[in-house]
Amino acid sequence: MANNIVIETKGLHKTYDESKVPVHAVRGVDIKITEGEFTAIVGPSGSGKSTLLNIIGGLDQPSEGSIIIDGQDLSKLKPNQLIDFRKNNIGFVFQSYNLIPVLTAKENVEFVMLLQNRNEKERSERTKELLDAVGLSDKYDVRPTELSGGQQQRVAVARALAPKPKFILADEPTANLDSTSTRNLLDIMARLNQEENITFVFSTHDQRVIERARRVISVEDGKVESDIIK
């Protein structure tokens, strides 16, 4: 497979100027991520990891610079186009799972496909396939509150994958998990990455998670300190 670039940032800056003292959270980040990567963004608390991921995912706008996803410059999209673009191209996994509480595991995974107007057959096949892939074939009809944190996060991964996005962004996906669940989740992510060639970009503080990554981008004070491909 050729080196297909899915994410490219050019001269990214982000300044929060809502408070009296402006916070310069990202100061000039240029990175390229190619299809099939399994990349960790690491750095101390406050170094700008979340800010960076939010901008890459189109949830937040940069103060300066541009993000190009699969050839599309996000700043060129209107708000509703951006939502559709996100829905179809980017999968999100959040630190605190963020499943829709009133929907079952199956319905949570199905939800984005419903928003995409996929047909019934396609939806249920894909939902089954994904929940099986994350090892939850016996939890289809269970609501999030009855699942453990690790199980919820696996549903979140399945949900993120449902619309067949170009890549998955995960902001500290294991921060709320115990070590067994962490290992379990990483196994699943790594397998999806290897077997299905799904691109993962995740942020973390956790040394055990960093070890599993194949590329580690360290940020500090909003700048890339080092970029190591193992």
Binding site: G57, V112, Q116
Partner: peptide, 16 residues
């Protein structure tokens, strides 16, 4: 509010 943030980020439109 948090839930709405999630819905927005996974691709639900505001009008929805």
């Amino acid at each position: 509010q948090y839930e709405f943030g999630v819905l927005l980020s996974i691709g639900m439109k505001k009008w929805q």
